[in-house]
């Protein structure tokens, strides 16, 4: 893990030392203007999306990480085979999601009375009367949006993992996937299940169904996958691939 050097720092290695101007004594602002004028491009600069600090794009080894000097946001994190892994993990997550929705999720039994419920039942819990919209919202949060996100990621990364040019509209689709990200709440749902289980544990016996484990797997896969994704790196790759 290394820190990115601010763009105007002349030293080759990432440093946390005071600013030095080697050749010219221009102010930083003037230097930018100068650089821009000379190279007619600011394509080797990057501004941290979270705090606007300019950095010079570093040449990173695979597996290294570049962070913003001011706020610590990860700016670049190239990894070997990241695209392939994202695609594989998304496909796995999709399969697990299908299992999670259709197999029984939990089974409750007390004194001979039993009730199996699926994720679908949890969604339909709010389907009476005024609360119907909440049913749609829950369906969206735990099934529809995660699935949309997996499909979008496969659409964007599968062609690139195979070495092809990015698919049509890949940028829009990737933006959509990023916009959905906070709203895909499969992992929140799993913690909710855990809390619910403790609540009914005294009341009745609860058996975990196959769908529960599918969902747990899904959450682990999602977390793994998101670790492989660095937004800025993805955009750079998308950009480079679509130009060539």
């Amino acid at each position: 893990m290394i820190s990115l050097a601010p763009f105007f720092d002349n030293s080759p290695e990432p440093v946390r030392q005071p600013l030095r101007f080697r050749a010219n004594r221009l102010s930083p602002v003037a230097r930018i203007a100068y650089q821009t004028a000379m190279t007619d491009s600011v394509s080797d600069l990057i501004a941290c999306p979270k705090c606007d600090v300019l950095h010079k794009l570093p040449q990173l080894e695979k597996g290294a990480q570049a962070k913003c000097v001011r706020c610590g946001t990860v700016l670049m994190a190239p990894r070997d085979g990241a695209m392939t892994r994202i695609v594989m993990l998304s496909i796995t997550a999709l399969i697990l999601m299908i299992a999670a929705v259709f197999f029984p999720f939990l089974e409750l039994s007390v004194k001979g009375l039993g009730r199996k419920s699926s994720v679908f039942d949890a969604i339909l819990a709010f389907s009476e009367g005024l609360m119907l919209p909440l049913s749609f919202a829950v369906a969206a949060l735990i099934v529809v949006l995660p699935v949309t996100r997996f499909l979008a990621l496969i659409y964007v990364f599968a062609p690139m993992a195979l070495g092809w040019a990015p698919a049509r509209q890949a940028r829009e689709v990737f933006k959509l996937a990023e916009a959905i990200r906070p709203w895909a709440m499969a992992e929140v749902f799993i913690i909710g299940v855990a809390v619910a289980l403790v609540k009914v544990a005294g009341l009745a016996q609860v058996t975990l169904g196959p769908a529960f484990w599918a969902f747990v797997g899904l959450v682990i896969i999602t977390v793994l996958k998101d670790n492989f994704m660095c937004r800025v790196t993805v955009w750079q790759t998308l950009n480079a691939r679509s130009q060539s």
Partner: peptide, 26 residues
């Protein structure tokens, strides 16, 4: 700045950074 490191923002340099991907434009 907590680390007391001198920084220049895109705005101060007369540039605009993209909030999504970080690329810099005039």
């Amino acid at each position: 700045a907590e680390r007391a490191q001198p920084v220049v923002t895109a705005r101060a340099a007369g540039l605009v950074g993209c909030a999504e991907c970080g690329h810099v434009f005039p």
